[in-house]
Design a protein around this nucleic acid. Structure first.
Lengths: 249, 249
DNA sequence: CGCGCAAAAATGTGATCACATGGCGGCATG
DNA sequence: CATGCCGCCATGTGATCACATTTTTGCGCG
């Protein structure tokens, strides 16, 4: 393999898994424009690998619904509609509330300490206005909680949902500090300390809905759904596309 | 491409999508032995295609958790444990109950008629002891219901869960007729006719748990978890593997 | 006869090639 | 100057090749 690409560092995983992780992170952090046409060769050149690993990574992301295979056989971040967004949130609520409740028996003081650290990181990111760190810490908090039990079934589903919502959070949350009037995570932590499952469910649900409730309307107003229009307007030119994704992934 | 394989029929979809569908069906119907090592070249030869489409199909099924990528980098149906099984059922319950409830506003008499037809097909399959038709009709019933609303988020998640439990239903349900003491589907249909959302939720949950409750213990007793052992015992020989999968996929 | 080691076959991974398709721009025409 | 057509280029798909790793087989030794 080429030794000059950004992925040159040796890694135990296969190349396609490294590409997958890079793309997954880029999607989760909203670094890829929704509606943007992702080309295999473009990404391959960008990452310094051949087309093969990229193809497989894209295929996997399509399976996780993070990407969508269009009729033209090109791949993009699926457009967001209000209906789909509400479905996604509803799915997140039922899955994450249940996952949290099922994790309760496995909650230890060690886990709570870790969650408190994550919570602190979240608040720090909010204060700093650092969107990337906010998302990252938020993700760490939730997956640490849901993963407390073996939860072999819930986590992948939840991750798929995050991947689908991720691309649209950033543009709707330019200023994250303004929306954090109530810290639902500390409510969740309090519930965890009391081993109060019902309160935990409520806190989790509130956390999901709080951070996201106003986004639906933002999506309508901003018209930046990134797909309904994207399907109509011609895909960008090859070179232009590669450039705009370069610093994203 | 070769024109003699079983997939020779022209199809609008890409080759890897055809392979994907074949494999998906084989998994859902429990035709592939859990723990069985699936080889790219073996499947490719079997289906009369090159390795490329098979690779992508396998990758996609791994993403959907229907298959598992082992450390050896080989692919198999993940072993089942009691914990995972319970997780999967719990996830099915919350997701499918919510999906059904959200479909309620979109329920029409036409849809109910279709569901009744599916229900009849299910009962016919049960009477005939035809496992494949039972699974198929069952799947048709549920996805028709959940898909009534646009449900762009729920259906893929539910399908992933079906793919994960599918391989283990058959061996635990040699005799399906014995377990159908109560027809939960007609209860669901009754709830639909009354537009009674809560009753529908209950019927769906009962349907999932009924058809499946005794399987957990069956899994323990039969020891046919198909993985814990499969990981230890050497994978079957190449030729043996190809033969045993031949009529499966 | 059992055990361990080495050769051989098989497999996954990544790269590259060939081909069909579709998008885009340039060009001619009204 | 607007508009429709044609050709070129980029892209996705499938096939094939080369290589490293794993698995299986077969042989020799105790």
């Amino acid at each position: 393999m080429t030794a000059t690409g950004p992925l040159a560092e040796e890694d135990a995983r296969t190349l396609h898994q490294q590409v997958l992780m890079r793309l997954r992170e880029a999607i989760l952090l909203g670094r890829i424009e929704p509606g943007q046409a992702l080309t295999i060769r473009g990404l391959a050149a960008e990452l310094g690998v051949s087309a093969q690993p990229v193809r497989e990574a894209l295929r996997q992301l399509v399976a996780e619904r993070a990407l969508e295979l269009m009729d033209n056989r090109r791949v993009r971040i699926p457009p967001m509609t209000i209906e789909r967004f509400e479905d996604l949130i509803a799915a997140r609520v039922v899955l994450e509330a249940e996952a949290a409740a099922r994790a309760m028996p496995y909650v230890t003081d060690t886990l709570i300490a870790r969650l408190e650290a994550d919570d602190a990181a979240i608040n720090a990111a909010v204060s700093a206005g650092d969107y990337d760190r906010w998302i990252g810490a938020n993700y760490a908090f939730h997956s640490a909680l849901y993963g407390a039990a073996g939860q072999s079934a819930f986590l992948p589903l939840i991750e798929s949902l995050w991947l689908q919502v991720g691309p649209f959070l950033r543009r709707a949350m330019r200023t994250i500090s303004g929306h954090y009037t109530v810290d639902r995570h500390s409510e969740a932590l309090a519930a965890l300390r009391r081993r109060d499952t019902m309160a935990l469910r409520i806190a989790i649900e509130a956390d999901i809905r709080d951070g996201i409730a106003h986004i639906g309307s933002t999506l309508i107003r901003s018209e930046a759904l990134g797909g309904a229009a994207g399907a109509v307007r011609g895909p960008s030119t090859g070179s232009g596309r590669a450039d705009s994704v370069r610093e994203a992934v």
